Computed example of a mutant assay.
Amino acid sequence: MDYQEKLKVLDEELMSFYQYCQQVGFSEAEMDVICAPLVSSLRKSFFKKVIKYIIIVLTFVAFAYGLCQVDSVSLHFSAVGRLLMIKLLPFWDWTAMFYESCLVSNPFYGEYQLTEEDCVSCEALEQVDRLGSVAYEHLLDSYLNRDAPLIVMDAMESWPVMNTDNFWFDNITQLYLQDEKLVDTVPCILTTNLRPGSSDLHAFLKRINSPKIDKWFVHW
């Protein structure tokens, strides 16, 4: 007897039992008492199945999370995920969410738009303070909290690379233009007063070598 036949026989027996209870004249409350052991057993069986499925899902999630901690596997998962998202584009355009800075609407937040006057405060600077052995409290109160620029002359003295001959501006520029690992570097956000129009670091490095440009700043 296969599984379906067993279910059919069980269903017939339950229907026969139900009809017998009706013929005898049992009330709904009495039938609830009579069927309580069966209902309890069915509930326990259902909860066991639910717990079993939950354990299986949690085990799978934990296994997948462990795999994602391996760099090579994480890289492949990321690549596959991106390909799947690209395949979804014809059915669901998620690009608006991708470029959205905040997915939760905040009625108290108003997006600030930069104006030309905002740039004047930096571009019109004729002199930047140069300090050494400056206390953090003074740096915070007099410059950082006021968004005032300064140069800390001895900030990098503790860097090990500063004790070598391999760290100066021209050398860094050549590294980014010629080194095999750095030549393909694309900054996520490149900010400069030269307005290159993109995050092309190579174009910026070549541009600042021009003698016509004597004032510039950049960070990425």
Rank of each mutant, 00 (worst) to 15 (best):
P37H: 03
M1A: 07
W168D: 08
V61P: 03
P90I: 08
S133C: 09
Q113M: 02
K48G: 11
Y53P: 01
W159H: 05
N166D: 10
T173R: 15
M31A: 02
A79Y: 05
G66R: 11
K181A: 13
V50E: 10
N145A: 05
L194I: 13
K8T: 11
V73C: 05
P211A: 06
W220H: 11
I54A: 14
H202R: 09
G25I: 14
V104S: 01
G110M: 03
E117H: 03
K8H: 08
I172P: 04
E30I: 09
L114A: 03
K48R: 13
F46I: 06
F167Y: 14
N171G: 11
E126D: 10
P37E: 06
Y3D: 04
V24Y: 06
L131F: 01
S158P: 00
L14I: 12
S78I: 10
F17I: 13
Y109M: 03
Y65V: 10
F26R: 02
G81E: 10
I55W: 00
T95G: 00
D170W: 02
H76S: 06
V186K: 15
L67A: 07
A62Y: 04
K215Q: 12
Q113H: 06
L190C: 07
Q4H: 07
Q69S: 08
P37C: 04
L125F: 06
M162R: 09
H76I: 11
M153P: 00
N145T: 05
D214Y: 04
I34P: 01
F108G: 00
H76E: 12
E116A: 12
A135S: 10
D184V: 07
E100V: 08
E116S: 12
E116L: 09
Y136T: 11
G132R: 14
A135I: 01
M153C: 03
L140G: 01
N209P: 00
S45M: 09
F204C: 11
D118K: 00
D129A: 14
